[in-house]
Design a protein around this nucleic acid. Sequence first.
DNA 1: ATGCCGGGCGAAGCCCGA
Length: 260
Amino acid sequence: MKIASWNVNSVRVRLPHIQEFLKLNSPDVLLLQELKAQNSDIPAEELESCGYNLIFNGQKGYNGVAIMSKHPMEDVKKNLYLEVENEQARYIECWISLKKSGYRLSSIYLPNGNPIGTEKFDYKIQWMQKFKDRLKTLLEYEENTIIGGDFNVCPEDRDAADPEKMKNDALFQPESRTKYREILYSGYLDAWRILNPDKTEWTYWDYGRAFEQNKGLRIDHFLLSPRAADKLVDFKIDIKPRAMNKPSDHTPIIIEILDL
DNA sequence: ATGCCGGGCGAAGCCCGA
């Protein structure tokens, strides 16, 4: 099972990039983040005509997440604060139904939280707490569970090309990292680190010269339940889409899990 | 060195991202 995740920074501008990526890689599932489109503006037919089922949680102007899957999707859930109206569209979850089995999957766009010391950073930490609560509930199901997306957290100093520069960034704060670790300690594994205990590659490069200088961040992650982690065999960061014309500032990450 | 990019909104300049 090949599962990809990509913060596209506008689904409308990046539609040709997405189509090209799907043609070249043919993943079973593609998680999308930062659609920057309300539901009625999402190019659903164009995406579905690539051979995928599509579910989405859009928002006007900002945020927005989606899941594309070759297999049927059931039991769709959107958002974490189900009681709040006009909640930011940062979470979508479903059950992927296979012939004799299946797995649960979420596409997440964790709040950036900058600048620190403001209500934006508070919101980030609150969102992470809600997220952690949801993931804890999912673990109780003892299923294959896969959480992918833009986490907006550098788990460690080595997950940034220039950690010194990131000292006052919300992605680097002890509170952000502690919450991330709390999620890991609740029973999830960082798929990249399972296969690469010593090596870091970037998933994001700022617009400008960062990509040509290869100065980036590792902030797009896949978290796996133990059951799913046992079957992980590959993690690739595909930098080709970042080198295209008019790219997203993030590039796709792709995992391969056997016998799901 | 933080918005100098890039996108959305909406029709100029501001908000947002990391």
